[in-house]
């Protein structure tokens, strides 16, 4: 299958909502159907080809080109195939995703992979807040899958997530792992304040020192074997986790005792 390519020709003046752009939809559509599919430019109902040059048809491989920072909801609820963006994207990338892969070479907005149940998202640049999070009022965020962000990330990363993995290469802002119920967050460059606040379960790994909430209790240093499993899983994505006793150890902190929760924050201490 050759990929469908969408190249931005007209920059939207206000946000463009384009949840129609998914492999699931395009795999059944002719070029004309793709061109005419509905997008919302603010309140206006528009055709996709009002904004994009479209080549290809009947494929679950999609490539997009251009500065799409105002384009929202790309890959929403997708379950298969691949969406690759050469550029930046707006909010809700891969929200409610069930499977398949998304790759973005530039930056992404807030709410990427929100409430996703499976699949893989890799953003090479910076991302906004609420990665893999629960929408306001919902009890659960991402249920499974993997999100990797090469750069920095915003507030409330992994808020109320239940399972799955989030890795952030750059520094993360406040409330990372807020009310987390399970899953794993890996912070390569640490985070600002209130990491793990109100967490119930789940694991946050940080390779850099972190300011801790007073409701986390220290419970020693160790080199647990489950880290090796994570390390093996993440290595193909170019992420390496240390765990060898000669290199250092992880200090473990349990909390949040205000819940009281059984989550853990592990911070790497090089030898």
């Amino acid at each position: 299958m050759s990929p469908i390519t969408l190249t931005l020709k007209e920059r939207p003046k206000v946000p463009l909502e384009a949840e129609t752009v998914t492999p699931d939809a395009f795999v059944t559509m002719s070029n004309e159907q793709i061109r005419s599919s509905l997008v919302y430019h603010g309140k206006r109902h528009c055709r996709l080809d009002d904004f994009f040059e479209v080549t290809g048809e009947f494929s679950d491989l999609i490539e997009m080109h251009g500065d799409l920072h105002r384009v929202k909801l790309l890959g929403k609820s997708m379950s298969r195939g691949q969406l690759k963006v050469y550029g930046s994207v707006g909010m809700h990338l891969g929200a409610d995703m069930r499977g398949g892969r998304i790759e973005v070479t530039g930056d992404a907005g807030d709410w990427i992979g929100a409430e996703m149940s499976n699949g893989f998202i890799h953003v090479h640049g910076n991302a906004g807040g609420q990665i893999g999070a629960a929408y306001r009022g919902s009890l659960r965020g991402m249920k499974n899958g993997t999100i990797i962000v090469g750069g920095t990330a915003g507030l409330e990363v992994g808020m109320r997530m239940r399972r799955g993995t989030i890795v952030v290469g750059g520094k993360v802002r406040d409330f990372c792992g807020l009310q987390m119920k399970g899953g794993t967050i890996v912070l390569m460059s640490g985070a600002e304040l209130r990491t793990g606040a109100w967490m119930v379960r789940g694991t946050i790994l940080s390779l850099q020192p972190l300011p801790l909430m007073p409701t986390f209790a220290s419970s020693g240093h160790y080199n647990p074997s489950f880290i090796d499993l994570y390390a093996q899983e993440l290595l193909p994505h170019g992420i390496s986790l240390p765990n060898h006793a000669s290199a250092g150890s992880w200090s473990r902190h349990c909390g949040d005792s205000s819940i009281p929760g059984k989550g853990e924050i592990l911070i790497w201490n090089p030898a």
């Binding site: 606040a197 801790l212 007073p214 409701t215 005792s257 205000s258 819940i259």
Partner: peptide, 13 residues
């Protein structure tokens, strides 16, 4: 958050 922990008789650092 500390107040919530104290209310539940939990440990704080």
């Amino acid at each position: 958050t500390i107040l919530r922990a104290i209310l539940k008789g939990q440990h704080v650092n």
